[in-house]
Design a protein around this nucleic acid. Structure first.
Length: 428
DNA sequence: CTATAACTCTCAA
DNA sequence: CTAACGTTGAGAGTTATAG
């Protein structure tokens, strides 16, 4: 019998911030998205105050101030490093692990039960708490969807308060009774839209979805939802994804700290995003066959003139050379840019990605002159940036002042990844 | 008419 | 002081187009 565990860190970003600042122990805190836009993580205290997930920060800033809520800009260097440490610990519990997101992993526990899997969950929780000071919840079930749902039960304390919920150790009748008390939208793969459509069919609880006819759901919805229902019934349809597959497309986009009016500044942004994406592309030893650039005004301000446009260009020869991609990116931008608008966001996408070993050379491009065939420069650039930090060496096209960069007004130190930050913490 | 490409929708963290 | 609302990626299904 298959058994999956889903381990999820509690309030992950908020917990990471608290870890290195003990004064915040009982303080309500929130972590903001890029550009200090929306609330993307809340500590238990902030949740208790009723701060909703995803709310734009400026809308609750006054209220937050009254409650003494402390806000942080997102510090991905910190969260990614802590995440790696969690994964390292989890890997010692099972050789088969899927790192599902920055704060969640699936473990294959099949055959590991001593007297049930619950004790495993307790051990995992204890070790992560002891070694890192982070709280995790563990859900266990015979399919990934059930492990996810069990995790939800553990978090909401719907079946005990140990922080571990093991569906394999409770009777089918008990499980179904539990399902009656959970809204269908909590199921992995059932989002807002599908939940609404299910509701119109009278399906609002997990129990009702569990009992629904799989064939009908396949016709009315998709094969995805059919799989979900089978998984809810304990039939494992989704395997662990242990090896992260190469990306089929790489996207880089960001909102600006302030509105941009000038084409020159948009060009800097586009060049910067391309540089990041191309770096990722080279890291997976691949080439992009097409490039898309898009720009847009602020869609949340319908009262100001709106404009958005995207354009894609196929490359005659696939490339991973930042210089080549940037030249095309700037050209595309010039085609879609319209003066007079206040731009709020730009983005680029590298598409039609192929492994470099599959490179199709152009019949017409002059041999030896095409970047990408000889990428010594890019390799050197990457190794310099690895050693001296991201952006240490870059194209002039990226600009120097980057006045358009995103807001990060409440950024905490990079406690675990930067000596400078550690020194600052010591001095405090 | 069929196979493929392009686009849309939905979901997840 | 003011203005201020995330990012990245995938898969499935539908529609358009080419031959």
């Amino acid at each position: 019998m298959a058994a999956f565990a889903l381990v999820d860190c509690n309030n992950f970003y908020a917990s990471c911030e608290k870890l290195f600042n003990p004064k915040l122990k009982n303080t309500p805190i929130v972590v903001l998205s890029n550009n200090d836009g929306c609330v993307v993580a809340r500590s238990a205290e902030a949740k208790a105050l009723g701060i909703p997930m995803g709310v734009p920060w400026f809308k609750i800033q006054q209220e937050a101030k009254r409650h003494g809520i402390v806000a942080f800009s997102s510090n991905y260097a910190l969260y990614a490093d802590m995440s790696n440490r969690v994964v390292e610990i989890l890997s010692s519990f099972s050789p088969n692990i899927e790192v599902y997101s920055i704060d969640e992993s699936f473990l294959d526990l099949s055959g590991f039960e001593r007297s049930g899997y619950h004790a495993y969950g307790i051990d995992i929780r204890q070790r992560v708490a002891d070694w890192l000071g982070l709280a995790v919840c563990v859900g266990i079930g015979p399919s990934k969807t059930l492990a996810k749902l069990a995790n939800h039960c553990a978090k909401k304390k719907l079946a005990g308060e140990t922080g571990v919920c093991d569906f394999t150790s409770i009777s089918p009748a008990e499980r179904l009774a539990l399902f009656e008390r959970i809204e269908v939208g909590e199921v992995w793969g059932v989002g807002r839209k599908i939940a609404a459509r299910l509701a119109s069919m009278g399906i609002t609880t997990v129990r009702q979805l569990h009992d629904a006819d799989a064939e009908t759901l396949r016709c009315r919805f998709s094969v995805v939802l059919e799989r979900t229902v089978r998984e809810l019934r304990g039939v494992s349809c989704l395997d662990l994804v242990e090896v992260i597959p190469d990306k089929q497309q790489i996207m880089s986009s960001r909102s600006f700290g302030t509105l941009i009016y000038e084409r020159a500044e948009l060009e800097e942004a586009v060049a910067s995003y391309i540089a990041r994406a191309a770096e990722k592309l080279r890291a997976q030893d691949a080439l992009a066959g097409a490039l898309q650039v898009y720009i847009r005004t602020n869609i949340f301000k319908p009262e100001v003139p709106q404009y958005q446009r995207a354009m894609t260009i196929p490359l005659t020869e696939a490339s991973a050379d930042t210089r080549v991609l940037t030249q095309w990116g700037v050209r595309l931008l010039r085609r879609i840019y319209r003066p007079g608008y206040g731009y709020h966001k730009a983005g680029i996408t590298l598409m039609e990605i192929v492994p470099r070993t599959n490179q199709q050379f152009s019949l017409f491009a002059p041999t030896g002159q095409v970047s990408g065939r000889n990428d010594t420069l890019m390799t050197t650039l990457d190794s310099i940036n690895r050693k001296y930090g991201r952006g240490a060496l870059r194209l002039a096209a990226e600009g120097v002042t980057k006045s358009w960069q995103m807001r990060r007004e409440n950024l905490s130190p990079r406690y675990t990844t930067e000596w400078e930050s550690i020194a600052r913490v010591w001095a405090r």
